Amino acid sequence: MRINLIPQVREGALQVSKKGDVLTVNGRRYDFGQLPEGAVLPGNAVDSEHIIGNVTRTGGQLQVTLLLPIAWDAPHEACFPEPIIDPPDGPIALPGGAA
């Protein structure tokens, strides 16, 4: 799995955990296990304010983009986050201290 993060200065928190192809975002479960290789799930088909853009599976890897709420004075790693690649199952540590 590859999770891309798009930071945006805004109120709110983001908590993400993973189990296989299931992401839990702020307590809401999203199961992408049925997304076949090469498929594209349009972002507007996913009812989430934090899952943005298309969800795809390429080379067997699920790719998801999340909106990362940050404060105006967020640390550099939150303002310019690196993709999270192949996170283990469980809570995902997010840049800036949110998890």
Score class of each variant (00 low, 15 high):
Met1Trp: 07
Ile3Arg: 01
Ile3Asp: 03
Asn4Ser: 15
Leu5Ala: 07
Gln8Pro: 02
Val9Lys: 06
Val9Asp: 02
Arg10Asp: 03
Glu11Pro: 01
Glu11Phe: 06
Gly12Arg: 06
Leu14Ile: 11
Gln15Cys: 01
Lys18Cys: 03
Lys19Leu: 14
Lys19Gln: 15
Lys19Val: 12
Asp21Gly: 00
Asp21Lys: 03
Asp21Pro: 02
Asp21Thr: 05
Asp21Val: 00
Val22Ser: 09
Val22Trp: 02
Val22Ala: 12
Thr24Gln: 13
Thr24Ile: 14
Thr24Ala: 06
Val25Met: 00
Val25Trp: 03
Val25Leu: 02
Asn26Leu: 08
Asp31Leu: 04
Phe32Trp: 03
Phe32Arg: 01
Phe32Val: 05
Gly33Tyr: 03
Gly33Gln: 05
Gly33Pro: 05
Gly33Ala: 09
Leu35Lys: 06
Leu35Cys: 06
Pro36Ile: 09
Pro36Asn: 09
Glu37Thr: 03
Gly38Arg: 04
Ala39Lys: 00
Pro42Met: 03
Pro42Ile: 06
Gly43Phe: 10
Gly43Lys: 09
Ala45Phe: 15
Val46Met: 03
Asp47Met: 06
Ser48Glu: 10
Ser48Pro: 11
Ser48Met: 07
His50Glu: 14
Asn54Ile: 03
Val55Asn: 02
Val55Arg: 04
Val55Met: 01
Gly60Pro: 09
Gly60Thr: 09
Gln61Cys: 03
Leu62Tyr: 12
Leu62His: 13
Gln63Cys: 08
Gln63Lys: 13
Val64Leu: 02
Val64Ser: 00
Thr65Gln: 15
Leu66Phe: 08
Leu66Ile: 10
Leu66Thr: 09
Leu67Glu: 15
Pro69Thr: 10
Ala71Lys: 11
Pro75Tyr: 01
His76Val: 13
Glu77Val: 09
Glu77Asn: 15
Ala78Asn: 10
Pro81Val: 03
Pro81Lys: 02
Glu82Met: 13
Glu82Gly: 11
Glu82Lys: 14
Pro83Arg: 06
Pro83Gln: 09
Pro83Met: 10
Ile84His: 12
Ile85Cys: 07
Pro87Leu: 08
Pro87Cys: 08
Pro87Gly: 04
Pro87His: 05
Gly90Gln: 09
Gly90Met: 07
Gly90Leu: 08
Pro91Arg: 12
Ile92Leu: 12
Ile92Tyr: 11
Ile92Cys: 10
Ala93Trp: 00
Leu94Val: 07
Leu94Glu: 04
Pro95Asn: 02
Pro95Gln: 00
Gly96Thr: 10
Gly97Ala: 13
Ala98Tyr: 02
